[in-house]
Write a protein that binds this DNA or RNA. Sequence first.
RNA 1: GCCGAGGUGGCAGAACGGCUAAUGCGGCAGACUGCAGAUCUGCUUUCCGGGGGUUCAACUCCCUCCCUCGGCUCCA
Length: 503
Amino acid sequence: MRAVRIHNTLGGKIEQLAPLSPPRVSMFVCGITPYKPSHIGHGRAAVVYDVVAKLLRRVGYHVFYLQNVTDIDDKVLKIATEEGRDWNAISEGNFQSYLQSMRRLHVDSVNFYARCTDYVNEILEQIETLIAKGHAYASDGDVYYDVGSFPAFGALSGQRMEMLEPGVRIEVNPRKRAPEDFALWKGEKLGPRWKSPWGDGRPGWHIEDTAIAVNVLGSRYDIHGGGMELKFPHHEAEIAQAEGATGKSPLASIWMHHNMLNMRGEKMSKSLGNVVGLDETLRQFRPEVVRYFLLSAHYRSPLDYLGPESLEEAGRALETLRVGYDRLISQIEENLAKTFPREVPLPGGGRAYFQDFREWIDRAPLLYPADPQHRSGDRVEDEMMNALLDDFNVREATARLFSFNSELHATLEAQGRSLQEEDLVALLRPYDLASTVLGYFSPARSRDSAASLSAAVELALECRAQAKQRKDYAEADRIRKQLSEAGIEVEDSAHGPKWRLKT
RNA sequence: GCCGAGGUGGCAGAACGGCUAAUGCGGCAGACUGCAGAUCUGCUUUCCGGGGGUUCAACUCCCUCCCUCGGCUCCA
């Protein structure tokens, strides 16, 4: 298995992933609090960890990817009060809309979304354990974590508790023993309540993550992901809770933190009125374009959203790749559609059988042995993999793909028709990697342009060819323009007209 | 104030202690085309926040300052 290098916030260095029980990799990512509709910043987080999970699977790991949903929270309740709505309807509605956006974005790597409210029993158990072990105390219906009992608190974020005092407004809470203690359980008189040994109430902010993670993944797991803004106090609290309760350390071997999506240099926030909705964005731009944009900066760097022009630029860049990819597929169809092998030996033994060409072309990149020494496509795929395996350097991998894309045109121009099966499959590999791991292309779109659409366009092109033959260019241009307005781009070439769907 | 992340050409954004500092977008010119598009070629003249230092050599390592972003704890 190839080595995966990841930046670990715990220690601040890039290190090699060493799973607790290979080939399994357990991964927990802090999910959303669905108190309002998601914005494109949430999309960034989702796409970043989607790439992480898909890349790990691509190199052979069996990834279990868990995400929590904080469906009960102060913010949810605040909105519920303000709008006079049921808190559950708010969080469930926003969560369902988030899931729909995820489907559109092809974020399909998450194995399990766990709702906080489905884990209240586990939360209560963990709190009781923490009290029993002297890490927490009950106080007038609430339960607080005793931060002083956990000396490592602050290690992840480099915060020293003594230094937090200056500049911080400390709100007086007589139920706490120390100001840095945080709530595990909140006694409630109003709003949703669950029974507990300390009276009715609801979970505190941090506890659901560890109750869920420890119950689903175990007391230790491989990767924890989340936004930088959660480093302190949220992730510190997670470490204190889980390690305090289980006695096992470290909770996660690798802590990944992605950087924020800014809005023209400012934080994207509701009060500034600069939130760009994810759902709305996906209505205006193709999902692959949104993914390309969200991946256009390294995950640990801030990404600036300048407005729709950012997505338009992403669309133009992607179009350049798509033209090459489509051209390659056409060439493969031309060379192999009739003669593609109906059975192919599998790398691990056995054989794969194909009756359909499209099925073959989809699977081919993973069925044929790669030869990076001799074939440019294989070499480029290898270089892209190396970049991705080095702390997920998507941008570097993409740069390789662009260079390859340029060369491809010359290759096809010179030797297109004479290229054999293995060579064509090799040329396909860089695009396949970009498609399956990065999500730059939607296979359905590039190939399954329904036969009926194809027939209709061919007919229109035939009319246009006749018009051109009698030098009626006005008519020829009219046909091309109308097709263009319908999203079908026609291009004349030495081998006759070609057409494609616009991005 | 403290902790953390970032400051690279018109814009976006990579890399490495040492080859002309990638790649994309945009702009200009040329080839191809009936025109367009796509593609190709060339150009877009000395881009690495400021200042010190280490080194034969720094965007890359160290120090310091400046700027931007996030965080510095819940309690409807």
